[in-house]
């Protein structure tokens, strides 16, 4: 099954994979080859990709995504999102610090615009931290 992760900044991933676990509005779903055609909404969270059938959980590849649209057909899985970061690019300590900064900004926000921005940052870094956490747990 082909997996494409498409953002405004370009195509992040375009490769053959065995299984993809996606966060959707109705909960997490796992997509395998031959899945029935489906169009659904992705919510901010972590995507996990299993490249080959026999791969163990510690070989899963993770991506932190913001919200988007998922399009599943027999042979191809397209994920259209605003932002996507590969788990490998995320440094846990940095994400943690960034999340704390964002939380602080949210608490200290004086107007609606700042609050909105802080909320977005909190979401974004919370997702990144989750991805870093998942990676660490499975690598051990």
């Amino acid at each position: 099954m082909k997996f494409q992760l498409i953002t405004l900044l370009g195509v992040k991933v375009d490769q053959d994979v065995y299984e993809v676990i996606l966060p959707t509005a109705d909960g997490e779903i796992a997509v395998f080859p031959g899945h029935e055609p489906l169009v659904s909404l992705a919510v901010p969270g972590a995507i996990a990709v299993r490249h080959n059938k026999g791969d163990a959980d510690d070989k899963l590849e993770y991506f932190a995504i913001s919200g988007g649209v998922i399009e599943v057909s027999q042979e191809i899985l397209k994920v259209l999102v605003d932002e996507a970061d590969s788990g490998e690019d995320i440094v846990e300590a940095e994400s943690k610090a960034a999340l704390e900064r964002a939380l602080k900004a949210r608490d200290n926000a004086t107007n609606q615009v700042e609050l909105e921005k802080a909320h977005q940052l909190v979401d974004r870094h919370a997702v990144r931290l989750k991805v870093a956490d998942l990676r660490r747990r499975h690598r051990r």
Binding site: A25, D26, E36, V39, S73, L80
Partner: peptide, 28 residues
């Protein structure tokens, strides 16, 4: 449009998907 999308299910609903796609297209 590929045939496969024509038969696709929409979750949670076609309207909600439409909302998200339209917004992203405008953004693009």
């Amino acid at each position: 449009v590929t045939d496969e999308i024509k038969e696709a299910l929409f979750e949670p609903s076609a309207e909600e998907v439409l909302e998200a796609v339209t917004y992203r297209l405008i953004e693009a």
